[in-house]
């Protein structure tokens, strides 16, 4: 049970870190406001956001039930 909780928390931390990186990239690109910033926003920021959110959703659906 403890190992299961640790695993979920670990995944939450990784997903959260990925999303934070994506959000920071997004904020920097919005402030920068050059044509290349849109490309970086979508390609880099979007990738981190997507990876973080998908990992979070995956961690939700892949939690083994307590009786497993």
């Amino acid at each position: 049970m403890i190992a299961r909780t640790d695993s979920i928390e670990k995944r939450l931390q990784i997903a959260g870190t990925l999303v934070i990186i994506g959000l920071v990239v997004e904020a920097l690109c919005l402030i920068w406001g050059q044509p290349i910033s849109f490309v970086i926003f979508v390609a880099v920021g979007g990738l981190f956001l997507f990876a973080g959110v998908v990992l979070f959703l995956f961690s939700l659906v892949s939690i083994p039930h307590a009786h497993d």
């Binding site: 939450l12 997903a15 959260g16 999303v19 994506g22 959000l23 997004e26 956001l49 959110v53």
Partner: peptide, 10 residues
């Protein structure tokens, strides 16, 4: 926090 807000921000 980890789904709704990031999707909204994006």
């Amino acid at each position: 926090i980890l789904f709704f807000l990031p999707v909204l921000c994006g």
